Simulated scan of single mutants.
Amino acid sequence: MNALIGVGLGLALVVATIVVLLCLGAFIRRSGLLGAAAVLVMPTFAPHFVLAGVFVAGIGWWSHTRHPDIGVVLLTLGGAGAVGSAVVTAVLIRTAWAAGGSVNLLRALAIGPMTGKADSTVTYATVGGQDLNLEIYRPADDSAPMLFYIHGGGFTGDTRLPATMRWFADNGWLVICPEYRLARPDRPTWDQASADATRAYAWAAENAGMLGGDSGRMIIMGESAGGNLALILAYRIASGKDGAAEHLPPPLAVVANYPMVSPRAALTTHLLHIDQGVEQYIGGSPEQFPERYADVDCTSYLTPQAPPTLILQGTRDSLVPPESVYDFVTRAERNGMDITLVTVPFANHFYDGLAAGSLGFQALTTITRRYLTASRHRSRS
């Protein structure tokens, strides 16, 4: 029996230590990989860490008469972990509320996988012998507003989030998620990916009636690399000066989640070889191809005619430098654009993508829903 109690106390000590370390990583900005890991998991697991901390503190209180030393340690670490995690949880909830979103704390505890299945898949083009498909997530009603959702993946991979797209479909949007040509070591796609996004958007608009959507109520959305493509596509359409996009129906709004607004700025990021992926996408360095880097920089497309723009950005992003996003927003405001920035504290890149229903997931989806609903009403007035 004593051996089992010892094992239980040891496990409680390990759990408490992990939670406290993650709290420290979340609160201390310059904490390296620990900090990066902390702000990746906190938007998903902070409420669970509160419960874990309380449980460990309870074990410490129960055991302090039998094992005073370990009891005090568990009580202290458990309490510190619970308080630190509760602060993170409260700040994230307050952030969502302040931006027009909402968080259900019970749902945040009952998280689920980010998996899901599209209702159908359609080939929208064949380019260079490669079929390009798009996924369709259908809402219950016909003639629904359309959400054209461009996935991320650093221009070299596919990190689409089925649970997110299903959520928007369940909340009334016809979601269209296209694939686009991804860069390979022998194939830079800096011009091809944008052309594919334009081609897919045109296909979705042309076939809106058949799909059950309304091409007059289109939204463009994307995350990370997809956020870059989403912003460029929306602004190119709005400018009316791009031959490939000038006849396309303008979107009511564009939403970009931790967008790679400046691939050049992302070259400073070596984590997960993001810098190598950017050079693969462009075909080389900025010194070799300055025009290409300018062509994929979202600031090159800023226009007063741009649709209302919502940007969500984690303040502790390890892959997309937050300063590049802040600078982009400032430049957009100087251009007279209607742009809204929501900064998400204690949040790394992909803060919304680890689990459906998490704090980060709920913040992204509900803030976006509120913003798009308001944009739709503005367009009617």
Rank of each mutant, 00 (worst) to 15 (best):
V15P: 01
A16G: 10
A16S: 13
V20C: 12
C23F: 02
R30Y: 14
G32P: 09
A36W: 07
V41K: 01
A46N: 08
L51W: 10
A52T: 09
V56Y: 10
A57M: 15
G58D: 11
G60H: 00
G60Q: 05
H64E: 13
T65V: 11
H67I: 14
L77W: 05
G79T: 15
A80K: 03
G84E: 02
A86S: 13
T89N: 05
V91F: 02
V91S: 03
T95L: 08
T95M: 06
T95R: 08
A98N: 12
A99F: 03
A108N: 11
A110V: 12
G112P: 00
T115Y: 00
T121I: 14
Y124P: 03
Y137M: 09
P139V: 10
D142P: 08
I150D: 04
H151A: 12
R160H: 14
P162T: 05
T164Y: 04
M165E: 10
G172Q: 04
I176W: 02
A183D: 01
A183C: 10
R187G: 08
D191F: 02
D191K: 11
S194Q: 14
A195E: 08
A197R: 01
T198C: 08
A202T: 00
A204C: 02
A205E: 00
E206V: 00
E206Y: 00
L211Q: 01
S215L: 02
G216N: 08
M218W: 00
I220F: 03
S224N: 07
G227K: 02
G227Y: 02
L229V: 09
A234N: 07
A234T: 08
A238F: 03
D242H: 10
G243C: 02
G243R: 12
P251F: 01
P251A: 10
V254L: 06
A256M: 09
N257M: 13
Y258Q: 06
P259T: 11
A265S: 14
H270R: 14
G277E: 00
Y281A: 06
I282T: 08
G284V: 11
P286W: 03
E287S: 14
F289P: 08
F289D: 12
R292T: 07
D297K: 11
P304S: 12
Q305M: 13
L312R: 02
L312C: 07
Q313E: 14
D317E: 11
D317W: 10
S318T: 14
Y326V: 07
N335Q: 13
M337D: 03
D338E: 12
I339S: 01
V342S: 01
T343D: 06
P345F: 09
G360H: 04
T365G: 06
R369S: 14
S375P: 00
S379M: 04
S379G: 05
S379H: 02
